[in-house]
Measured scan of single mutants.
Amino acid sequence: MSIQHFRVALIPFFAAFCLPVFAHPETLVKVKDAEDQLGARVGYIELDLNSGKILESFRPEERFPMMSTFKVLLCGAVLSRVDAGQEQLGRRIHYSQNDLVEYSPVTEKHLTDGMTVRELCSAAITMSDNTAANLLLTTIGGPKELTAFLHNMGDHVTRLDRWEPELNEAIPNDERDTTMPAAMATTLRKLLTGELLTLASRQQLIDWMEADKVAGPLLRSALPAGWFIADKSGAGERGSRGIIAALGPDGKPSRIVVIYTTGSQATMDERNRQIAEIGASLIKHW
């Protein structure tokens, strides 16, 4: 067993022997301040990774656009098919120029040779490549099948209805392509620590998230040296922004954090800054 596999296998073990965790309302004060600064709703939840206990939450059962955070769930569904012998990570998928959609920095470079399922998941999570996500959605049967996968996990809230990039439209009061912070946090925890996926697939999923290259201005910008984070960000229309993450000190994750916002007129930089400040408060009061 590799060191990384050992780390993920012992996530519940280490967490069980940690000192009790206590909620700190100071972080919620910052979440509410972010709402004021952005002029928009902000949803927040913080779960203990081992027990699933909610440590703090704000608007945990209000719907927010998922945006690209759905790509972690998508690759979880792909990995479940791999575990069941219905898919192979090494299978190569070929596609054409007509398949390319807006923001496809990886797939646009491989029109000639195609990409493997493993490479597509890596591109979808680490670079948020939209064509990679659409190609992977095709392998599982489309958005409705991802929703069905989530329902089978016990998540009857999260739903995907459309493809990239239309799913980022974020129309107010439109339930399409949305989740709730509580539902997303619980589902992410199941994917990373539950028995739904094999140990190898859980490790692969967290490795992809740990290698995320496009979430630097968010929670990662607030992390002290030595902290662990595996995350996936999302951005959408109407001032929408979000991030889902597993993080913790001492090089291992111990909490799940989900943050979503929508309806702001603020710039992307300002949305990023507010999420980073929430992260800084979380870490300060850990």
Rank of each mutant, 00 (worst) to 15 (best):
S2N: 14
S2I: 15
I3P: 14
F6L: 10
V8P: 10
F14Q: 03
F17V: 15
P20T: 07
P25R: 08
T27M: 06
L28A: 10
K32C: 09
D33Q: 15
L38C: 07
E46I: 07
L47E: 06
L49A: 09
S51Q: 10
S51L: 05
L55R: 09
L55I: 14
F58Y: 15
E61V: 12
F64G: 00
F64L: 02
P65H: 04
P65G: 03
P65S: 05
M67H: 07
M67F: 04
S68Q: 00
T69K: 00
T69N: 02
T69L: 02
T69V: 03
F70P: 00
K71H: 00
V72N: 01
G76S: 11
A77F: 10
V78E: 03
L79K: 00
L79R: 01
R81N: 12
D83I: 03
E87K: 03
E87Y: 05
L89E: 06
L89F: 08
L89Y: 07
L89Q: 05
R92S: 10
I93M: 03
Y95K: 01
D99V: 09
S104E: 01
S104N: 05
P105K: 06
V106C: 09
K109T: 13
K109E: 14
T112E: 15
R118Q: 13
E119C: 04
E119W: 02
L120D: 00
C121M: 08
M127G: 06
S128Q: 00
T131L: 06
A132E: 00
A133G: 12
L135P: 00
L136Q: 01
T138R: 15
T138L: 10
I140H: 04
K144L: 13
E145P: 09
L146M: 13
L146H: 02
L150A: 09
G154L: 05
D155F: 01
W163R: 11
P165N: 08
P165T: 10
L167I: 13
P172Q: 12
N173T: 12
D174T: 05
D174L: 04
D174Q: 06
D174E: 08
E175L: 14
R176F: 08
M180D: 10
M180A: 14
A182I: 15
M184P: 00
T187K: 01
L188R: 00
R189K: 14
K190F: 08
L191R: 00
G194L: 09
E195R: 12
L196E: 15
Q203R: 14
M209L: 08
A211E: 14
V214W: 05
G216V: 07
P217H: 10
W227T: 02
A230L: 05
A230F: 02
A230N: 01
D231W: 03
S233A: 08
G234Y: 02
G236C: 03
E237Y: 12
R241N: 04
I243C: 08
I243H: 02
L247G: 01
P249C: 07
P249Q: 09
P249F: 05
D250M: 12
G251F: 08
S254I: 10
S254H: 14
V257F: 04
T267R: 11
M268H: 09
E270F: 12
G279L: 04
L282W: 02
K284N: 12
